[in-house]
Design a protein around this nucleic acid. Structure first.
Length: 573
RNA sequence: GCUCGCGUAGCUCAGCUGGAUAGAGUGUCGCCCUCCGAAGGCGAAGGUCACAGGUUCGAAUCCUGUCGCGAGCGCCA
């Protein structure tokens, strides 16, 4: 049940009838008619802009249309009153029974309330994390991981067919560096002194990898030149790193559907095929780029390169795809990778990148636009930095890795649920402050706690009702605080669609906080007014009617937390 | 220099793809706990939505320009 959607349908039907009867000119477009919660609750339960949207095309005054529509809507038994306000808003007040019916509908279909068919089964590929396989994940990665995972869940919840994908950058120079670093640890494991020179990865996490390698191959690569061992050590090291990364992801509860190897694109003709597809459109040429203005690199000299005419698809300058030695730039396999995604038949692509990839957005969109003939939209979500604190002080430490805080450090301290929720309490493009101490505080200004506490409170109420042998019955929504809460529940399906459309999972987190807040307000009101308590001592019938509302709240909280990947708790400890 | 993002209450941030008197938490101030649901509750103050124009019935939201902060800018991925 989607109350906003249903009331909107009612309104559209009335407008259609008005057109048939001549009260409105025929043929008016109705897509822009919206039914929304009014900003000020004093304006009622719902408001529609129908009259204002239609006034101009109908050549009528907004308030006249609104008044005529109001008369019709007031005949609807679900609507108590319809009132013309302001420039032509129509404010609706719903009948108490309408709220009761909503709560009953939620209880009757707890697994589906809020789910949407908006996506119509569209196939969406969400690529996220995609960290280089050279070490454990750090805090920054965890934000991208949580965001991508929640976005994927949100899209599934709204009717999309989602594939969660990780792109393994195992084709570039950094995995050679990894191999050399592991080789030093290998030598170390065999009793020689490791020489971790400048530019190698110094982290301790490579020590066991070197040891495992020594156990596997023995001493046969000792003293041998790089050409002998590099390729095999690289394979071995990448495998080890990807295992590490999968473990880190598992700690956060993130599970990918597909890992895509960059290396698999090389030596298989797939890069060439992707470039050829661009070339066939005349988008590949030999040329010389202008130097960037204002900031002249030290050793700039004009250089002829193979370029992709990304400017034909909205980029600012054309981009090189081949180095002067004839090898591909990093951009080329990325083009091939996205070509592969397109050819796998996805209707929509989403890339979740770190904010330092900002300069990369336009060229990637240009490539996808060209390769898909403009048919497959690519949305790139940039994830801003995470600043770690503890009790307000900047937090720096590393147990195992170079000089960064690992994902594991954080999850082991505060838990996966807290990490996930907190990471989603900001828009992706705003920096996030993460305080390892404050996220564990039990107070109202900690949204994780506040939402969990609301769920636990409901469960406590339900346990007490159950102990008295009482089950939820036909709900009775009468007090203003109860209506406020029911109204918030009615917004859930609408919020899901808004959040999914904008690829903005943080909206779910904020919604849950508001819902919890309204719930706690009602609960607290029971202090002063015992009639508002959910469990009415010695009155089974009243209790049965009262507990339907909190139960519905817990259903929605549980669904929302499910999208965020957070486990709802039964009790606080 | 160019590109992208951001700029909203003292602080941290929401703000529904253009709606009404711009919201929440925190902080500040006032009131409320012997017990019955205070890991708090109720209320108040607090704003030139960075600035200036524009678009229209209507702008924090869209467009142009300016300022400030951050990130990026040809063989690093």
């Amino acid at each position: 049940m989607n109350l906003f959607g249903e009331i909107r349908d009612n309104i559209l039907n009335e407008l259609a009838a008005m057109m048939r009867e001549g009260a409105l000119p025929a043929g008016l477009a109705l897509e822009n008619v919206a039914v929304e919660p009014p900003r000020d609750p004093a304006h009622g339960d719902m408001a529609t802009n129908a009259a204002m949207v239609l006034a101009r095309p109908a050549g009528m005054k907004p308030r006249d249309i609104a008044a005529a529509l109001a008369v019709r809507l007031e005949r609807n038994p679900r609507i108590d009153s319809a009132e013309v306000a302001g420039p032509g808003f129509l404010n609706l007040r719903l009948a108490p029974e309408t709220w009761g019916a909503l709560i009953e509908a939620i209880l009757a279909a707890p697994a589906t309330y809020g789910r949407s068919q908006m996506g119509q089964g569209q196939r969406v590929n969400v690529e996220y994390v995609s960290a280089n396989p050279t070490g454990p994940l750090h805090v920054g990665h965890s934000r991208g991981a949580v965001f991508g995972d929640a976005l994927a869940a949100l899209l599934e919840y709204s009717g999309h067919d989602v594939t969660r994908e990780y792109y393994i950058n195992d084709g570039g120079a950094q995995v050679d560096v990894l191999a050399r670093s592991v080789y030093e640890r290998y030598r170390e494991a065999l009793g020689e002194a490791a020489e971790i020179g400048e530019g190698l990865y110094p982290g301790d996490y490579l020590v066991p990898v070197g040891r495992a390698l020594a156990e596997k191959v023995g001493a046969r690569w000792l003293g041998e030149p790089e050409e002998v061992w590099l390729a095999e050590v690289r394979e071995f090291a990448i495998d080890a790193m990807m295992r590490l990364i999968r473990e880190d992801l598992a700690l956060l509860g993130v599970e990918m559907d597909n890992f895509f190897s960059e290396r698999s694109l090389y030596d298989s003709g797939r890069i060439e095929a992707a470039i050829e597809a661009l070339s066939a459109q005349g988008l590949i040429y030999q040329g010389v780029l202008e130097p960037p203005k204002g900031k002249m690199p030290e050793e700039w000299e004009p250089r002829e390169q193979t370029l992709f005419r990304s400017t034909a698809h909205g980029d600012d300058v054309d981009r090189p795809i081949m180095k002067s030695d004839g090898s591909w730039t990093y951009f080329a396999p990325d083009i091939a990778y996205h070509f592969d995604k397109i050819s796998r038949g996805f209707d929509q692509l989403i890339d979740v990148f770190g904010a330092d990839h900002g300069g990369y957005v336009k060229r990637m969109k240009a490539a996808v636009s060209a390769l898909s003939g403009g048919k497959v939209p690519l949305d790139i979500k940039l994830i801003q930095l995470v600043r770690l604190f503890r009790d307000g002080e900047p937090f720096k430490m590393s147990k195992r890795a170079g000089n960064f805080v690992t994902l594991r450090d954080v999850v082991e301290r505060v838990g996966a649920d807290v990490t996930r929720f907190v990471m989603l309490t900001r828009k992706n493009d705003a920096p996030l402050d993460f305080d390892l101490a404050r996220v564990l505080e039990q107070s109202r200004d900690n949204p994780v706690f506040y939402v969990q506490y609301a769920h636990a409170r409901v469960k406590s109420v339900m346990r007490r009702a159950e102990a008295a042998g009482i089950t939820p019955g036909a709900p009775l929504i009468e007090d203003a605080a109860e209506v406020t809460l029911a109204r918030k529940l009615a917004e859930w399906p609408r919020l899901v669609e808004i959040a999914a459309r904008g690829h903005e999972p943080h909206r779910v987190a904020f919604y849950l906080y508001e819902l919890a807040s309204d719930f706690h307000a009602l609960y607290n009101r029971g202090n002063d007014r015992p009639r508002l308590r959910f469990v009415q001592e010695g009155d089974a019938a009243a209790t049965s009617a009262k507990i339907a509302l909190p139960l519905a709240v817990s259903i929605v909280i549980s669904a929302g937390l499910g999208i965020l990947g957070v486990t709802p708790v039964e009790e606080m400890r």
